[in-house]
Design a protein around this nucleic acid. Structure first.
Length: 348
DNA sequence: AACGGAACCAACCGCTGTTCA
DNA sequence: GTGAACAGCGGTTGGTTCCGT
């Protein structure tokens, strides 16, 4: 025999809460505590179901709720956490004191998501969407073209390409000439370039054993999933494959999986390796610079010119090898370490 | 001033994992 | 061990407000 029914659904009020109902609920909880939501409405004299009372309390009436607009730091934190946790609103809310999951979810859907889309960034994967970018237009000579703020935002998203002049030239050629590559290939180009830079950073990092904390991040990232086989893009990186395993989560894949993925290297990469004498060891300006994701920030929310965008670098850097660097960068802005902020072990 | 569309957000719905009789 | 109810979560809806024409 199970429990008694939660509540008789008939006759219970729905819809917006009145001030009287709010006062009744607040007064009751202040006096008796939250206790059992099932019996609370009856004891408090409310004609609501317990679920409705709990929602009203947790999302609106709780005294520790912070109202008002989201700050820049909160917004950046949401983006960072979302890039790692996805739509785990409650997990994200747990890292933002005073904010509810519902509030964060609404803010994401109404503000951040739209802004990322405008910037040509997929709000689900946090990867640039080449189908939304018009590279040919933003690469026009400056003298003949006055860029809009949107173009400047897009340029920031393409900042990583600056480290690979050969790739930039190739990308601009490919992407401004639709006939030269299929849409699918175009969409795959930028993630590959980004992953190449990640791989370069991993290759340059001193070998170390993965820590327990590292394993928290060993789920295959979306970027890695989009780019199987990259670990073999350059034979010089083969010796660091174990780091790529840590980076991309291949450790969880069956033996031989990585090799088998060579069969799926997209034709575009074949074009790249055939035509551009690509050097994957192209200089990266900063050994600790995870700038591949710097364009994922939300420039329109940046409070001042010249602000370092490193706080937003998690979109492509939230992996075992880079998380410490991210935390160090973010700490400079927020006086906190991302490793502290992102204790995501509970959610992985 | 009136209208229509966009934006916003509180609240509901439905599902899932956990608890308990 | 079983099944019903609970608690919590993410997705969605619908009412309200804002803004441009």
């Amino acid at each position: 025999m199970g429990r008694a029914p939660c509540c008789d659904r008939s006759g219970l009020k729905k819809g917006p809460w009145t001030q009287e109902e709010d006062e009744l609920l607040v007064a009751y909880i202040k006096k008796h505590g939250q206790g059992n939501w099932r019996t609370l409405p009856k004891n408090a004299g409310l004609e609501r179901c317990g679920k409705s009372c709990r929602l009203r309390w947790t999302n609106y009436l709780r005294p520790d709720i912070k109202r008002g607009r989201f700050s820049f730091e909160e917004e950046e934190t949401i983006i960072q956490l979302h890039s790692i946790l996805g739509n785990k609103w409650s997990a994200i809310a747990a890292r933002l004191p005073g904010r509810t999951d519902n509030e964060i979810k609404n803010y994401w859907n109404t503000h951040i998501r739209k802004r990322l889309l405008r910037m040509g960034i997929d709000p689900v994967t946090h990867a640039p969407r080449l189908d939304l970018l018009d590279l040919s237009s933003i690469l026009k000579p400056a003298a003949a073209y006055y860029p809009t703020q949107g173009d400047l935002d897009t340029l920031r998203a393409l900042e990583p390409l600056a480290n690979y002049p050969d790739l930039l030239r190739l990308a601009s050629t490919l992407l401004s000439a639709p006939a030269s590559a299929s849409t699918t290939e175009q969409q795959m180009l930028l993630p590959w370039l980004i992953q190449a830079q990640m791989a370069q950073q991993v290759a340059q990092a001193p070998p170390r054993h993965a820590t327990a904390a590292d394993h928290q991040f060993m789920q295959p990232s979306s970027a890695c999933q989009q780019m199987p086989g990259l670990v073999h893009a350059n034979s010089a990186q083969q010796q660091h494959q174990d780091h790529m395993v840590a980076c991309c989560g291949y450790a969880q894949l069956p033996a031989g999986y990585v090799d088998s993925q060579l069969d799926f290297v997209p034709p575009l990469m074949q074009m790249v390796s055939d035509t551009s004498n690509l050097q994957w060891s192209s200089p990266v300006t900063s050994s600790n610079n995870c700038n591949v994701g710097s364009g994922v920030s939300t420039p329109s929310s940046s409070p001042g010119a010249g602000r370092v965008n490193s706080a937003s670098t998690t979109a492509f850097c939230a992996n075992a090898s880079n998380i410490d660097a991210i935390g160090a960068d973010a700490a400079g802005l927020f006086d906190m370490h991302l490793s502290d902020l992102l204790d995501v072990s509970d959610y992985m």
